[in-house]
Design a protein around this nucleic acid. Sequence first.
DNA 1: GGTCCATATCGAACAGTGTTCCGTATCGAA
DNA 2: TTCGATACGGAACACTGTTCGATATGGACC
Lengths: 280, 280
Amino acid sequence: MFYHWAAVLVNSVRYWYGVLVSTETQDHAPDPAGPPALPPPPWQRLPERSSRRRRDPISRDAIVDAAVALLDRDGLDALSMRALAEQLGTGAASLYWHVGSKDGLLDLILDRLIGEVQIPDADPDRWQEQVREVARRQRAVCLRHPYLVRISIGRVPMGPNAIRLSERTLAILRAGGLPPKMAVQGHLLLISTINGFTLDETGVGDPPGARPGDAPSPQEAAEMASAYLRSLPPAHFPNLVELAAEYTLVDDDARFDLLIGIFVDGLARAAASATAATAS
Amino acid sequence: MFYHWAAVLVNSVRYWYGVLVSTETQDHAPDPAGPPALPPPPWQRLPERSSRRRRDPISRDAIVDAAVALLDRDGLDALSMRALAEQLGTGAASLYWHVGSKDGLLDLILDRLIGEVQIPDADPDRWQEQVREVARRQRAVCLRHPYLVRISIGRVPMGPNAIRLSERTLAILRAGGLPPKMAVQGHLLLISTINGFTLDETGVGDPPGARPGDAPSPQEAAEMASAYLRSLPPAHFPNLVELAAEYTLVDDDARFDLLIGIFVDGLARAAASATAATAS
DNA sequence: GGTCCATATCGAACAGTGTTCCGTATCGAA
DNA sequence: TTCGATACGGAACACTGTTCGATATGGACC
């Protein structure tokens, strides 16, 4: 989800030194009709486990399945190697043989979830609306798995699903006529913008001891904050006091639409002035 | 740093139930010439520790000082209660008397660092440039303390410094003529946009075992990623293959300027059309 | 069939974490 | 001097990710 490229640095190191055992060289026969098997990135070839296998061991896929189920049910803090192992009816140490480390597991989970984002085929006539649609879908997945954005922090997703998603998004931006650099940067910045917003939306986990019911509703909480702002000394905080009422409204869908509208509009104009500059 | 208001919920709960002992009722005499002492938010008055004190105990400020120093030096993972206590020449358990919990400590640290962001006085004639300036300064602080954005996740900063910063930023937006709702939302969305970007920049901590020198430079890392993208099957990934070169360039300052330019431009236009709609 | 070895499993232990308990100092006020 | 709130900190608890080493398991080769 996060595409800061200088960051590839650390991740590549992580792979090179074998902390992680990630997408191994197509353990399963690639679906002949489906999308092509991606070549493994050059920094991911450490384990190189031969395809010889036995019985039906707990597959890596099964581990990721169970992990996602556990995360969806109990949240990020509940995902410990021991809890996950118990879920699979095995021991914690066994998991390490398959995923190398918890970090490696999180990488796999991230790519799995990225795979849930569906991108429409590019249509040059409505590229701006399509970009907004991409943003909405990406946010929807982030909300369906509230821990997702937090997992993605510090990870550079180069898994098969991430690559496919990038390709399709890029196609839409290029169909819109964005020059190459603008398309790439637009994509990267769109992602970080979405993440900034959804991180805010989903960043708040329930505190450890919270029973359901003793927490104020989002409505009440916003009301409290608003009331506090209104109580500030107006001489020193005129704007906060005056605008306190605006802090009670919490329609996140509308806020997101506003943000993405601003972004896409600004991007289109930046692109237009960029092409105009090179054309002259 | 993160202002999702529904999130006040959890934080307020945290305070109400006393997990945290935060900014206590102006323990130190407020600087008479300086900014006024803020009234404590209603959900922060739990401990209500009387001002009677003895000797010169390790003050809460001193703890935050040491914590920030430790974080700046060794990074987020190095901040453990035991390590911090040792830094202060005391025991870990003692810290809990002052800050309630590690979470409470992080709240205090967050507000401390927010205090480093300086906001210029509002000038109606150049509000767009001023918003960009605010963004740049906020990012600068985030880069100076690379752990900052990660700390801010899930926290709703309502400390004195955060309030002051909001007031001044809001002043700039209102000076620009933004209608009330637009000013508030513009501020909130600006923050999440900045955070999304800087989280990307700073989200990658060095992996535990990394000695300096065995990690490829950002340049090399980007090169690796670009080379990988170029090696993909062009039939299925035409855009990634064609644009692979664009992924090598990593001038984060320029990327940030582009993002903020897009945002401010889009915001100005959204505001203009909003006022036009209400005026008609 | 017997041997071999990579594949796979997992109990036990290690070092580390945040946090709580409880006993004990220390001092200001009565 | 007494008393009690303030402040401190050693020890323990439950938990974490991870490693080690012993032990199965089963396919390939002789």
